Amino acid sequence: MRGMTADLFDGLDDVGPAREPLGPGAMLLRGFARPHETELIAAIEAIITQAPFRQMVTPGGHQMSVAMTNCGSFGWVTDRSGYRYDPVDPESGKPWPAMPPLFRKLAEQAAREAGFPGFAPDACLINRYEPGAKMSLHQDRDERDIGAPIVSVSLGLPATFLFGGLKRTDKAQRYRLLHGDVVVWGGPARLAFHGVAPLADGEHGLLGRRRINLTFRRAR
């Protein structure tokens, strides 16, 4: 039986994104997620009713400016004891909300479009940026298998994405990410340093003074 979910999946198959290479193993897919903005935002709102956004604390005791939550089999968390993936939300003591099928399909399709077929994410970090929030340059290396790519979806206010090399000292290039853009990196770029410059103030028609970022990973 074909219902709404199947129809959404068909729509993803029809998307023909503008591909913008960022380097070997890294690709920016302009507007890839935009056809399903309404469904994605509704799914995010449902998730945060179960697992609200929170500003986590790093092992060094710094409170992050970005608010976070998760969905999927595992959630990324940080506190004074370290960075890790956990199947349980430490605030509620319950499993993280299930990853919506549309999220999974979007991540799989974006990874395939960027040259990484067979991606099966089991974790989705949901980050909320408000004006002034930022993400310092870092590597995603808490995953057990770094053979899988990272898929990052931008919604809401524009952001300046910083994408560097395999060393923190490598110069990071700056890319303006708009609502619906998706960045995928893996292979030789999998451990590239990346971050987000402080978010400029503004007003987005669907998300107001916010940027929401979905980051899909294979944690286990």
Score class of each variant (00 low, 15 high):
residue 172 A to V: 05
residue 133 A to N: 11
residue 110 A to E: 03
residue 186 G to R: 13
residue 159 A to D: 04
residue 145 D to N: 14
residue 119 F to E: 06
residue 163 F to V: 06
residue 98 A to V: 13
residue 130 E to A: 09
residue 159 A to Q: 12
residue 198 P to G: 13
residue 193 F to V: 07
residue 176 R to S: 12
residue 101 P to D: 10
residue 143 E to P: 12
residue 102 L to E: 01
residue 198 P to L: 07
residue 201 D to R: 12
residue 105 K to D: 09
residue 105 K to C: 14
residue 185 W to M: 03
residue 100 P to H: 04
residue 159 A to Y: 04
residue 195 G to K: 05
residue 158 P to Y: 07
residue 128 R to E: 14
residue 123 A to R: 00
residue 188 P to C: 02
residue 129 Y to R: 06
residue 98 A to S: 12
residue 161 F to D: 00
residue 100 P to A: 08
residue 177 L to M: 15
residue 151 V to H: 06
residue 94 K to T: 04
residue 138 H to W: 12
residue 172 A to G: 12
residue 126 I to E: 12
residue 101 P to N: 07
residue 135 M to P: 00
residue 94 K to W: 04
residue 168 R to V: 05
residue 113 E to P: 01
residue 117 P to A: 02
residue 184 V to R: 04
residue 106 L to V: 04
residue 130 E to M: 07
residue 128 R to Y: 04
residue 199 L to M: 15
residue 184 V to E: 03
residue 108 E to G: 13
residue 169 T to Q: 02
residue 176 R to M: 11
residue 163 F to C: 06
residue 173 Q to R: 12
residue 155 L to Y: 01
residue 165 G to A: 09
residue 131 P to V: 12
residue 174 R to A: 14
residue 101 P to H: 02
residue 162 L to C: 06
residue 160 T to D: 10
residue 144 R to V: 15
residue 97 P to M: 10
residue 142 D to C: 00
residue 149 P to T: 01
residue 103 F to W: 09
residue 167 K to W: 10
residue 151 V to R: 01
residue 104 R to G: 11
residue 144 R to D: 14
residue 95 P to K: 12
residue 106 L to D: 07
residue 197 A to M: 10
residue 147 G to K: 13
residue 135 M to N: 00
residue 135 M to L: 15
residue 97 P to G: 02
residue 130 E to G: 04
residue 150 I to T: 08
residue 116 F to E: 08
residue 197 A to F: 00
residue 153 V to I: 10
residue 166 L to W: 04
residue 187 G to K: 07
residue 193 F to Q: 02
residue 118 G to L: 12
residue 142 D to V: 01
residue 188 P to R: 08
residue 170 D to M: 02
residue 98 A to C: 05
residue 170 D to L: 00
residue 176 R to I: 11
residue 114 A to R: 09
residue 174 R to T: 15
residue 94 K to C: 14
residue 167 K to Y: 10
residue 200 A to D: 15
residue 116 F to S: 11
residue 136 S to M: 11
residue 135 M to S: 00
residue 103 F to V: 02
residue 181 D to T: 10
residue 201 D to F: 01
residue 198 P to A: 09
residue 95 P to G: 10
residue 139 Q to I: 11
residue 183 V to E: 04
residue 138 H to E: 08
residue 128 R to C: 13
residue 122 D to Q: 07
residue 169 T to N: 00
residue 168 R to N: 08
residue 164 G to I: 09
residue 97 P to T: 07
residue 96 W to E: 02
residue 166 L to T: 14
residue 152 S to W: 03
residue 149 P to I: 04
residue 162 L to Y: 00
residue 117 P to I: 01
residue 109 Q to D: 13
residue 97 P to Q: 05
residue 153 V to C: 08
residue 109 Q to N: 10
residue 144 R to F: 12
residue 178 L to N: 15
residue 183 V to G: 01
residue 97 P to I: 11
residue 144 R to E: 13
residue 138 H to T: 09
residue 102 L to V: 01
residue 180 G to H: 05
residue 170 D to Q: 05
residue 175 Y to G: 00
residue 164 G to A: 07
